[in-house]
Each structure stands twice: as C-alpha cells, then as structure tokens.
Design a protein around this nucleic acid. Structure first.
Lengths: 148, 148
DNA sequence: CCTTTACATTTGTCTATACAATTGTTGTCG
DNA sequence: CGACAACAATTGTATAGACAAATGTAAAGG
C-alpha cells in the first residue's frame, strides 16, 4: 500500500500526517473486507460484535450497559441494535426481575449456530488480511498500537 | 491501551483477532480526537478532507471524480458533501465549459483561510496522538501498515 | 445524422448513527 | 413516608452515509 499513490499526491507529507492517513486507509480496507465477509449473513459488524459479546457471557444474560461497555465501537443506542438481533431470532430479551430498570439479553441457540458460521468467515478474512505478517511482526504491530 | 481490559474479556484472544480489535479500538480513539478537534469549526472530517484536496489543486479547479479519487475515505455521494462546503462559502462550483458533463470545483479564499485555522488544530491533535512515538517507531508503524 | 453506449454528476430513498429528551424504576435523605 | 436525585433503557429527531436509479452530456458506430 503506497499512501501517496492512493491519495494521488506528489508532495511529501510530514510523517505524523502520513501515519494518520495511512492508518485510515488501512482501516477502510479492513472494514471493506469485513463487510464483504458479513454480507452473505445479512448482519452488520456491530450486530456481529454484540452477538460475540452475548456468547461470551456463557449462559449468563447481559444487560444493555454491559454490552455497551464491551463493544469495540461504542454505540449511542444499543437498544435498536439488539432489536434487530431479536427480530432475526438470534437473541432474546426480558426485563430483569431484580431490577426492573435493567433488561437481560441472551443469545439464542439459533444465534449461536449462526455465529459459528460467521466466525469462520470472519477468521478467514482476518487471516487473509494478515497473511503478509510474520508472528513477530504481529507482535510488533500490537506493541505499537499499545502506544496510542 | 490494554485491549483485554477495554473490551472486558478474560480469555486470551488469538493474535490475529486481537490485532483486528486493537486496530479498531485505536481507530475509534483517533476518530474521537479528530472530531473533537474539528467540532469548533463545525466541519466534518470528510469536508475537511475535501477542502485539503481542493487546496492541493493550487488554483486549478477539481471535478467531482478527481475529488472522489483522492479522498481518504471514498464516499458514495460527494455532491452533497461539496454542497455543504459551498453553503459555508468555502468552495464554489460551476459546470465545466469544455465538457458540460463535468463540474469544476474550487476552494475560495474564505475556505483557504478557514482551512489554515483547522490545519493548526488538526496537526496539534496529530502530534498529541503520536507523542508517545519516536521517529523510528513512526517509520516502523508506517512500514507495518504498508503490509496490509 | 441518428441511435446507442459510456460518462459525470445528481437525486431519491432507505438505513445507520449521533445526540437529546423522555420514561420508568430504584435509592437516598430529611 | 415523600420528594428528589440517580440510574437504565427507550424513543424522537436530525444528520450522515450507502446504494440504486435518473438526468444530462459526449463519443462512437452504422
């Protein structure tokens, strides 16, 4: 990936600015690949993320604020996101008996099955995106990302 | 930035998955900082990007497809984006005389002046985001990003 | 010329997201 | 207890973005 070529500029960018643009370009590529991988399942990246969180609860229900807290990209209204998962039969929701302000949300068996299929497609995408990296380079990248 | 802590998971993620999540988390942080920096100017990141492209033309007008081509994040409708810049008096647009299918878009003096102010705020943000990095680390990061 | 094809931009429409206001519930303190 | 603050989720609304269809213009081929 050549930054200058992609954004068609001849002038030399300061390294800081170049890094930022570079970062965004790579992110766009990643997002594109992911949404392509998710398209056949008719599920958004956010919905996929929530499903993974719900599965991570291992039988325990999650409430909305828990989900929000754990989401990679925080959303302003997770309610409607969960609505869609429920509509698809991948999750269910009820009012929390101990605290009626809260709701409890759980992944359904159907949701789990679907998620397994999606996981496969997603991890294939991840591997494809990262195929040019050695294990050491991945560690290096993670270490650099930690500095942000 | 500790990935596992942020998304509140105890289990060890495979390095590929961890890298992807890490990447997205950092991107969110960057985006947040940028939109904060741009907020006082009431301009979106995309609009800012287009303004920079227009300035990069150095007097020559740009047409829509040129802008689209050079944008960091490609947009489906750049028309309406330019509309907003025109509304703010930062750009002007007319039909291309040689080829009436095309339009010619130029940054105005007003737009240039505003852009200079925004540039300052943005580069301060960039520096702040990257303050933990040595020059060598920035080069390293750029080299790794190239591998995508 | 006239029809067809390709091109460049614009418009329509539907969905996603951001942000604020609202609803319903619980906890606290005089 | 009763008023009020704090909490959790939902709803309303306005804006941004994705995608497809439509418009207007130019080029190509018979």
């Amino acid at each position: 990936m050549n930054v200058e070529e992609i954004i068609k500029t001849e002038k030399k960018l300061p390294i800081e600015q170049r890094t930022m643009i570079h970062y965004a370009l790579v992110f766009n590529k990643i997002r594109e690949e992911f949404s392509l991988a998710l398209k056949p399942f008719e599920i958004s990246e956010q919905q996929f993320n929530v499903l993974r969180i719900l599965r991570g609860q291992k039988g325990k229900p999650a409430n909305l604020s828990t989900i929000n807290e754990r989401m990679v990209t925080k959303m302003s209204n997770t309610t409607r996101l969960v609505d869609k998962l429920i509509l698809k039969g991948f999750a269910e929701r009820w009012v929390c008996p101990e605290n009626r302000r809260k709701v409890e949300i759980m992944i359904t068996d159907n949701g789990k099955k679907e998620l397994e299929k999606i996981d496969l497609a997603v991890s294939r995408t991840e591997e494809r995106l990262l195929q040019g990296f050695s294990h050491q380079e991945l560690e290096q990248l993670n270490a650099l990302l930690d500095k942000f």
